[in-house]
Amino acid sequence: MAVYTEVSEQEARSLMRALGLGEMTSLKACAGGIENTNYFASTELSGQTHDFVLTLFERLTFEQLPFYLRLMKHLALRGVAVPEPHANASGELVFEVNGKPAAVVDKLRGKSELNPTEVHCAQVGAALAHMHLAGRDFELAQPNLHGLSWCNVMVPVVLPHLTDSQKALIQGELAYQNSIATRPDYTALPRGPIHADLFRDNVMFDTRNGQPHLSGFFDFYFAGVDTYAFDLAVCLNDWCIDPETGVHHAQRAHALIAAYNVVRPLQEAERALLPAMLRAGALRFWVSRLRDLYLPRPASVLQAHDPDHFERVLRERTRHAMNVEQMAGAA
């Protein structure tokens, strides 16, 4: 999260009152992430404290936002652990704050686990599969706005900033992904609404009976309709690699894939194309981090991400192409 647009306490208090969420008692800017302006807001209602996230959208438009917010509402009503957006008396989920589209959602309990074990990864895999199943009857549709088409536009933009070795890697991978996209087995892959950004810092865990318990996942503002295999690959590229080297972690991958497969069994084509999707996920996030490094936007609070990390992941994924059994450490 970041702060590009300042929000006064008066503006935030007025919105909380309009949504019937109580009297605001605190407002705090958030420094993590890079896309939107975010604040944590607490209110008091009927003698109880309630915690929310107020988001002002810096790139997404009023027309685009209903897809994301209605998807979150759809999933929450089907028992998926996601923050539920709050509507006004007219049922609207998108509001205007300081000239920007905005939304208010519940703040999840717990904290992110940045050093996950197989237990954490298994819960993430199962939750992702439940989300994919719950979203199958979602009526709105929007493509993945940061998919391959977006990479085709952005790679030429960041290319002048790269070394010769990096240029060769990014252009070669883009050509490979464009070839994959034309294959019949790829076009036939199961698709639906995906999260597309389910990293460690977008999942919350609390403790129940002394054990970690996934309390929810958030930040759906990269969501779109794409292949479930790509969504799974994005998870594997964050939860199941070494953050310093980008090297694959077989035990965590085994736990994540096995748990996903129990809830929603992977089709044979998904299993066969998962290595290519791992490369696609690494490319997508390398490109976005290069964009943010070389084409930054001003923000009063901002923590940028290192693009070199996903360059390392992509190099590892291209050097060590594996089928899903090998990737998960199966015999």
Rank of each mutant, 00 (worst) to 15 (best):
G147H: 04
A269G: 03
A2M: 07
D219C: 13
Q326P: 07
H254R: 11
A87N: 06
C121Y: 03
P212C: 11
H213R: 07
F57Q: 13
F285P: 15
V119Q: 15
L148Q: 03
A122K: 00
D51S: 12
A102R: 04
A255M: 11
G79V: 06
F222I: 01
M72K: 05
Q142W: 00
V119R: 09
A168C: 05
S300D: 15
P212L: 09
L65G: 01
N115M: 05
M72F: 05
V158H: 04
W286M: 11
G91W: 00
P243W: 06
P212H: 11
Y221P: 06
I180W: 01
E11Q: 15
A122P: 15
A272P: 03
R297Y: 07
P85Y: 02
P156N: 05
M154L: 09
M131N: 12
A233H: 08
Q48C: 05
L93V: 01
A141D: 13
E325R: 10
M1D: 13
A258I: 04
N36T: 08
Y176N: 09
M277T: 01
H86D: 07
Q267Y: 04
L148D: 02
Y4M: 11
Y294C: 14
R297S: 10
T49Q: 02
Y228W: 09
R291G: 09
N323A: 07
G246N: 10
A18M: 10
P275W: 07
P212T: 08
W150E: 14
Q142Y: 02
A129I: 04
L148C: 00
P298I: 08
I170Q: 03
T61S: 15
A250W: 04
Y39D: 14
L140N: 03
E244F: 08
S26D: 12
R297I: 00
G99A: 07
L54Y: 00
N98V: 09
S26A: 04
V225E: 12
P184H: 08
V287S: 08
A276E: 15
P298A: 13
L140S: 06
A102I: 11
P193D: 11
G79D: 12
A282L: 04
E118Q: 14
G192E: 14
P275F: 02
F230N: 08
Q326N: 06
L145I: 10
V301S: 05
L128V: 08
M131Q: 14
C30M: 11
F67H: 04
T182L: 15
F95I: 02
M1G: 14
L162M: 10
K73H: 02
G192Q: 06
S165M: 01
Q166Y: 00
V97M: 15
Q48Y: 03
S288I: 09
T227D: 09
E316Q: 08
G110K: 05
A129D: 05
